Amino acid sequence: MHLPADAPEQALASLPDSMPDAVDGVARAKLYGEPLFKLPNDLYIPPDALEVFLEAFQGPLDLLLYLIRKQNFNILDIPMAQVTLQYLEYVEQIRSHNLELAAEYLLMAAMLIEIKSRMLLPVKKNENGEEAEDPRAELVRRLLEYEQMKVAAQQLDTLPQLGRDYVRAQIHIEQSMVTRWPEVSISELQAVWGDILKRAKLTAHHTITREELSVREHMTAILRRLQTTRFVEFADLFDPSRGVPVVVVNFIALLELAKETLIEITQAEAFAPIYVRLAYSPT
């Protein structure tokens, strides 16, 4: 249902001839930013400028279901004459304004007329002596299926929807592709070295010997040991039982390897154990 297309013209014709220049000092509209206090005499309103639809249907089945439910007809026993007449009245209205929209409705109208015609004919029996199927059976099946889908769609529409009922919170966190290990401070290295010296003094022997100690040999020994495992705890690279001189030379060898970037001294997090590993070299 819709209002006549010439409703705006009829409304303008009913206005008094003498229009006030302003109503309580409020402009009726704005034209190019300037207030308009009086309607122009040469104002033209197209015939189809205003159209109000009181009901909106999603297709022929929706209209047909609306007509049946509105008059409380039994959907299993549809009075085809009344429903077809009301349906054709609505189709005639939309056909005069939108022929493309009416095409789908006209197809359903033809189906209703066919069913109505078949119901006027005498009932024929099939080869088994049983009466043929009701001509309305296929239409009833489609209407029931459509009504079930429509109810399901209404139930889904009541569920919260993203963008309509709530907004998803989003936060951007920048992550570096390269893993960055916590840096080992000088104070932490000194603390670990002091603990190693204390344990070396506890196991010191009072044997006076002269031993040739080579930093390069200790560097080679450390590299060989790191090749067999991925990580070695810093304290495990020292053998306090061999005395302070060996521990000192071993520590110097460790510093030389770190200086030459052959090894890396790292830890998983602050105050965690310190580990030593071979430096990564891309192939």
Rank of each mutant, 00 (worst) to 15 (best):
M111K: 12
D134W: 04
L143F: 01
A110R: 15
K124P: 02
Y105R: 01
A103I: 08
I94A: 02
A137I: 06
L88G: 09
M108Y: 08
E104G: 14
M111R: 12
E131Q: 14
H97L: 15
P135I: 04
R141K: 12
L121I: 05
A103V: 15
E145N: 09
E138T: 08
A132N: 14
A137F: 09
Q93V: 10
P135Y: 01
R95Q: 07
E130M: 08
L120M: 11
H97W: 10
H97C: 13
K124Y: 06
S96H: 09
E145K: 13
A109I: 03
R118K: 15
R141V: 07
V140Y: 00
E133R: 06
A102K: 02
R136T: 12
R95P: 02
A110I: 07
L120E: 13
L88H: 10
G129V: 03
H97E: 06
P135M: 03
Q93Y: 09
L101V: 12
V140E: 05
P135L: 04
L121S: 10
L107Q: 13
N128H: 11
M108F: 11
E92P: 01
E89W: 07
L139H: 02
I94W: 01
K125W: 04
E145T: 11
L143Y: 01
E133L: 13
E130I: 07
I113M: 11
Y105A: 03
R136Q: 13
E114Y: 07
Y90A: 01
E145W: 03
